[in-house]
Lab assay of single mutants.
Amino acid sequence: MEVRTIKVFTTVDNINLHTQVVDMSMTYGQQFGPTYLDGADVTKIKPHNSHEGKTFYVLPNDDTLRVEAFEYYHTTDPSFLGRYMSALNHTKKWKYPQVNGLTSIKWADNNCYLATALLTLQQIELKFNPPALQDAYYRARAGEAANFCALILAYCNKTVGELGDVRETMSYLFQHANLDSCKRVLNVVCKTCGQQQTTLKGVEAVMYMGTLSYEQFKKGVQIPCTCGKQATKYLVQQESPFVMMSAPPAQYELKHGTFTCASEYTGNYQCGHYKHITSKETLYCIDGALLTKSSEYKGPITDVFYKENSYTTTIK
């Protein structure tokens, strides 16, 4: 009895394709271990004539594949690729409408935090270190965002349907971005203890939790000093293409032309909904596939993004 075979390709990165001759009487799992086709788990399936010449994702289970996976995804987590594939199996079914010149995501599976993050990423200057993220990001900007969303979920250790947080998501993504040249110098002034300067680099240099107003941050924000008295913390120097200011959701007025974009969060910790506000020729609110415009805006804002380049204080 002759062994019926077909020729397929296996890959971990969709760049390096490895030619395989597979036995049609055995499952993919018996031949390769966990195997995925377009995100779908085909591990328990036997090869079919229609699979001839198709590319299958496999887990990096030998040295060659491990090197290829690390170079593309910059992670050695053995569960990463499987999590990416199972997320992709959902995100490829989502709709990605162009809204006001940006790629958004039609609401499904509690994905409003991903839509808000995706919209924000198209408006701030950011370059990702893992080629996987950078490639998928370019495709997302062009309207094909399924891979990018699935990668975000995998890097953030999230599953489809789980509630997510924009600030946490951005923080994970910033860790995989090139923020080497970003720098922030802060000064804390206390009447009792004097003053202390701190220099922050990388992710810490672009994120701040405690106030939404970048102007206020430049002037000074009140913080408790270690001595128990009130101290003032203010920005001395900022070198970065953008800054992200966050605070627990509270009524906040966004003035046209003073910011790049913002995240609105309605609801409580267990259950809520994100919308995205962007400042173009007027203010726009993007909620999944829905767009509304207004000249002014007041609502429960939790993150505001500002364009920056270089700032030095005039406070002496």
Score class of each variant (00 low, 15 high):
T5E: 13
I6V: 13
F9K: 14
D13N: 15
D13I: 07
I15A: 12
H18F: 10
H18C: 06
Q20P: 06
V21F: 14
V22F: 01
V22N: 04
V22Q: 08
M24E: 11
T27H: 10
Q30K: 14
Q30E: 14
Q31N: 11
Q31P: 08
G33P: 00
Y36G: 04
Y36L: 04
D41A: 13
T43F: 09
K44G: 13
P47N: 01
K54L: 14
V58K: 06
L59F: 10
P60N: 09
N61P: 10
D62K: 06
T64I: 12
L65D: 09
R66L: 11
V67L: 15
V67E: 11
A69V: 05
A69N: 03
F70V: 10
E71V: 08
E71R: 08
Y72V: 03
T76S: 14
T76Q: 14
D77Y: 04
P78V: 09
P78F: 10
S79I: 10
S79Y: 08
N89D: 12
T91C: 08
K93N: 14
K93I: 00
W94N: 05
Y96W: 06
V99S: 08
N100M: 10
G101Y: 05
T103P: 01
N110I: 00
N110R: 01
L114I: 11
L114T: 02
A115H: 09
L121A: 09
Q122R: 04
I124N: 05
L126F: 15
L126S: 04
K127Y: 05
N129H: 13
N129I: 05
L133Y: 05
L133E: 02
A136Y: 08
A136T: 05
A140Q: 02
R141L: 10
A142C: 14
A142S: 11
G143C: 05
A145M: 04
L151I: 03
Y155N: 06
Y155K: 03
K158P: 01
T159D: 09
V160E: 05
G161Y: 04
L163V: 07
D165H: 06
D165Y: 07
V166C: 01
V166A: 05
E168G: 15
E168Q: 15
Y172F: 09
F174N: 03
A177G: 04
N178E: 10
S181I: 03
R184C: 07
V185I: 13
V185A: 02
N187S: 11
V189M: 09
C190V: 03
C190N: 02
Q195G: 07
Q196K: 14
T198L: 14
T198N: 08
T199R: 07
L200E: 08
Y208K: 00
Y208R: 13
Y208L: 03
L212S: 06
E215C: 04
F217W: 06
G220H: 00
I223N: 03
T226S: 13
T226C: 09
T226A: 14
C227Y: 00
G228F: 01
A231W: 01
K233Q: 01
K233M: 15
Q237F: 14
Q238S: 01
E239R: 10
P241D: 11
F242H: 00
S246K: 00
A247V: 01
K255D: 06
K255F: 08
T258A: 10
T258S: 12
F259S: 05
A262S: 01
S263C: 13
S263F: 08
E264V: 12
Y265S: 05
Y269N: 15
Y274I: 04
K275W: 05
H276I: 07
I277T: 00
I277E: 08
I277V: 08
T282Q: 11
Y284A: 13
Y284G: 08
C285M: 11
C285A: 07
I286H: 07
L291W: 15
S295T: 12
P300H: 12
I301A: 00
D303S: 01
Y306M: 00
Y306T: 00
S310A: 11
T312I: 11
T312V: 11
T314F: 12
I315H: 15
I315R: 15
I315E: 15
I315V: 15
K316R: 15
K316W: 15
K316H: 15
